[in-house]
Design a protein around this nucleic acid. Structure first.
Lengths: 335, 335
DNA sequence: GGCCCTCGCCGAAACGATTCAGTTGCTGCC
DNA sequence: GGCAGCAACTGAATCGTTTCGGCGAGGGCC
């Protein structure tokens, strides 16, 4: 009981080609015929088979997006922006979650390749992936999200994380802090490395300031809590007087750990600043200072670039869009 | 330069049928041939075309999931659970976000139908949707998520929201509160209606307790903040002494509004309880009491049901799974 | 009237993987 | 030797849509 164009054609007494034209170029068909075909479609409950369309078209009308962590509101915001732009061109967004795991990242790339997606948006774990190369050879545009490609061979939409890190630590310095701990990791993730680099620069620019790095396995609330506990357990004299967390999830975990036993006061004893400025940051126990990134704009712009690249074909030169981050000061870094 | 099974077959000097067998039933092919074909695949960089497979198979290996709000961590957790179960059977999850908007919901259902998805998981806005019926007629299983079907004609995985609402308000009663405001809406959303119903029951069971309903347009932080401001602006005597928010996002918004000017103390002046127990609830300005739902288990179970239903075909009787919610007490409702 | 266009429609070919009835060649058994 | 049985492989048909060369009818123009 599957209804195909053929059935519709028979019911409306036209050819399959005409049905297809009604579907895709109704202006090419006489009004009376359009009407008749539409009626047949409605009556039979015909619904296009996307697989067949794609097979014919050679590629799908979906765009793949691979993010580091769906549970991070920053990335859901990116996804929303991407989805909005995709919808403008009648495309769909396929959302994959690598969870900072290269195997999962690879699995999604394979999947997207099999699906012959229109293009791939990725916040990659490592800098060079043969799979990305292969996709590109096939003619599938690839745009890096929240990350710039080392050799600028890929298009990308990112925020200057070095500047962001610098903003954060300079702010800490300006509010009188001198012993800063950077909480984040793994350092193989580009964003983490860049934010740390920015922190280093700000520290170097401030006489008497010291930086310590507390490396985490991932960028989650849980890992933040663990790092916070490490700091809490130290003798008071050995604690930093400020913490810069590589993202807000970590920062919120750190905050939970510090506040848990009531032993450490934020910002009294330790100031805390995160990164991303997710919605929940302002609602934290101590409202969190953070570095804001235009998440949904990043997603929107990335899809925009992707579609332009897809339309241009091979004579497209990769384009790097870089947004500037913005410091948002709240309670957690009050002097 | 597209590589198809035909090219692989030629390169390995076998027929296309054999290539397909190597791909899908390698045990049916002699080891030497498997080796030869695999080598050809690797050399040519052949990647299966999913559209062609699906066309032949009649349906895709994806499962569609439509949630009310991707930005709500509860739903991303549901999605994670669903994805995990789907991956066990080599299936993919397509995530759609209705944003509590019937048009968007409909658009995703249409899309999923065109994609001939293996099945649909939906947290529906309204109770009866002709589109769901049509999907079912086509043989596509539909499982309701976080919602039970009124006439039990659909399979569903849900949490007893009436009990959850009752738990919340009974807890407020037990901690001495008597003038409760329910913040949530629109009431057309089943979860909201049920939680309110539970609240009503608990109020009815407590002599001297009164319930007021503050309706919101949606279940977001922003709407919560607006509701919180309404309450904050009232004369002290007309304020409730407890607020039950239909979900944690709303609760966090309410909390922000109440704390903003420092005029209202939580839980001193007003106790506050939310629903869902999202990760961020415990990290809020005032750690939030909430009603916990097993989010990722819901997603996992829903896909499990879906796959069983798909395998059983027509002789499947819908099954309703109901989990019990759990009260989580934190600072925000301390007596 | 002859010629050329345009419009509206037709229908076969093509996309690429899977399936299945059929062929081949070999082993083992009476 | 004859034959059944089996393993390994073949290749044409199939899924449902889009595309595109082509055809006939009607209109405009010289």
């Amino acid at each position: 009981m599957v209804v195909s164009v053929r059935d519709v054609a028979a019911a409306a007494s036209v050819s399959v080609g005409t049905v297809s034209n009604v579907l895709n170029r109704p202006e090419k068909v006489s009004p009376a015929t359009v009407e008749r075909v539409r009626a047949a479609i409605a009556e039979l409950g015909f619904v296009r088979n996307d697989a067949a369309r794609q097979l014919r078209a050679g590629r799908s009308s979906s765009i793949g997006l691979i993010v580091l962590d769906v549970r991070n509101p920053f990335f859901t915001d990116v996804a929303r922006g991407a989805e909005d732009r995709a919808a403008e061109d009648g495309m769909t967004l396929l959302l994959g979650n690598s969870d900072e795991n290269p195997d999962r990242e690879g699995a999604y790339l394979d999947l997207f390749e099999q699906q012959r997606v229109h293009g791939v948006l990725i916040s990659p774990l490592t800098d060079d992936l043969p799979r990305l190369e292969r996709l590109r050879k096939r003619g599938t545009p690839v745009v890096l999200v929240d990350r710039e490609s080392a050799d600028r061979s890929y298009s990308s939409v990112a925020v200057d994380d070095v500047v962001g890190g610098e903003l954060a630590v300079r702010h800490l310095a300006e509010t009188g802090r001198r012993r800063v701990a950077f909480v984040g990791g793994p350092s193989s993730i580009g964003q983490v490395a860049d934010r740390l680099e920015g922190a280093r620069r700000a520290v170097a620019a401030t006489p008497g300031m010291a930086l310590e790095v507390i490396e985490t396995d991932s960028l989650t609330v849980l890992q933040g809590r663990a790092a916070g506990e490490v700091i809490r357990e130290r003798p008071v004299s050995e604690r930093p007087d400020a913490i810069f967390a590589a993202n807000d999830l970590l920062a919120m975990g750190v905050l939970q750990a510090l506040k848990m036993l009531g032993t450490v006061d934020v910002p009294g004893d330790i100031a805390l600043i995160g990164y991303d400025d997710i919605d929940f940051a302002s609602a934290a126990v101590v409202p969190l200072s953070s570095i804001r990134q235009p998440a949904s704009l990043i997603g929107y712009t990335a899809v925009d670039l992707l579609l332009r690249e897809a339309a241009a074909g091979s004579e497209f030169t990769p384009e790097q869009v870089v947004f500037q981050p913005e410091l948002v000061v709240r309670e957690s870094t009050r002097a």
